[in-house]
């Protein structure tokens, strides 16, 4: 199979997954207790008022009609209308997506930037104090719930020392980019952006960082013990070249797979972190929509999250296949 056919096959599989997500998410509203009408109407609304609201929202239509209409609208790029907020779902969801992607990428940068060097260092200095320290650090990161870590970070660095903002997203990465050509000073805008994003990025990225550190360490140890590394050393290649060109490259193949999966998880799984930091992303929109039984918005959010997850994984598969051509034929 060629590389192109491999990517095409993965993409079609991804489309199937997205369709599954759409269907499951649509079905969720009918198996989850609680009616959207109660989110719109006051508790003491008459049954007549409830029926009028149900009719206005289209909730009195048969299930297959609602599903068919939803799929048809979706194919036209219409995610529907939030009957709770009275606004287009597309606008609501895509207004939140940049914040979530920004946070996920920032968390990934924090995680990757620290974890791979730490994992390599830990493996190459096995059983030395730095290895013990890195192991302790990564175990702590894996074991710490990110909501607790988030609250602690806020208490220490925002409330006590007033270094960062407690919550919100007052400055975004777009502001930083604009400051390069605009009137706002770049360095100041960058610092202001960091004041908002640093704590949530650390809270979200810590587990990720710990995981990659452990994975890099064990992968490096595994590779460093293999015959080709011994052979390379026996040929007199510099140790640095052996470690970072040969061993690390092979170590990175499974790491990249996990990176891809985790990036998807970061996009969809930032719900708790976003809630703790009041970060205006998809996670807080999902929570709010669940609480309000705003099904169209919830469906739209989950479809975007699911699609992002699938896209990232297709991309990872492609990179994986590029790094290891054997995957294509397997």
């Amino acid at each position: 199979m060629s590389f192109g056919r491999f990517v095409l096959k993965r993409s079609l599989q991804g489309l199937g997954v997205v369709w599954g997500v759409v269907t499951v998410v649509f079905a969720l509203r009918f198996v989850t207790p609680g009616s959207a009408i109660n989110a719109v109407a006051p508790l003491d609304a008459s049954q007549e008022t409830r029926r009028a609201i149900a009719t206005e929202l289209g909730l009195d239509q048969p299930l297959y009609v609602q599903y068919g209409q939803y799929i048809f609208d979706l194919l036209r790029g219409d995610m529907g209308f939030s009957y709770i907020r009275g606004q287009e779902v597309v606008g609501l969801v895509f207004a939140r997506l940049p914040a979530t992607v920004e946070l996920a990428l920032a968390a990934s940068i924090v995680a990757i930037g620290l974890s791979i060097p730490l994992g390599v260092l830990s493996a190459t200095r096995r059983n030395e104090p730095i290895d013990y320290g890195a192991t302790l650090f990564s175990l702590g990161g894996i074991s710490t719930p990110n909501f607790w870590l988030g609250i602690m970070l806020i208490l220490i660095f925002a409330v006590e020392f007033d270094v960062f903002n407690t919550s919100g997203r007052g400055v975004d990465v777009g502001d930083v980019a604009l400051s390069v050509i605009g009137s706002e000073p770049f360095v100041g805008t960058l610092l202001a952006w960091l004041a908002y994003i640093t704590l949530p990025a650390i809270a979200l990225g810590t587990y990720f960082m710990a995981l990659i550190t452990r994975l890099t360490r064990s992968g490096m140890l595994d590779e460093l013990g293999k015959g080709y590394v011994q052979a390379a050393r026996a040929k007199g290649l510099p140790d640095t070249l052996v470690r970072y060109k040969h061993a690390l490259r092979n170590t990175l193949i499974p790491v990249i797979t996990v990176l891809g999966l985790q990036l998807g998880t970061l996009i969809g799984g930032a719900v708790i972190t976003e809630a703790v930091f009041s970060w205006p992303g998809l996670g807080t929109l999902v929570i709010d929509s669940i609480n309000r039984r705003d099904w169209p918005v919830l469906q739209g959010s989950l479809i975007v999250i699911g699609t992002s997850f699938v896209l990232v994984n297709v991309l990872v598969d492609a990179v994986y296949a590029y790094l290891d051509p054997q995957v294509v034929n397997d």
């Binding site: 903002n165 610092l191 202001a192």
Partner: peptide
């Protein structure tokens, strides 16, 4: 206030950063 703080903190950081830089 929230927004006020956003502006103040942002302004503070902006000018602090800028002062340091230029």
């Amino acid at each position: 206030s929230d927004n006020d703080d956003h502006i103040n903190r942002r302004t503070m950081l902006t000018y602090a950063g800028t002062a340091a830089a230029i």
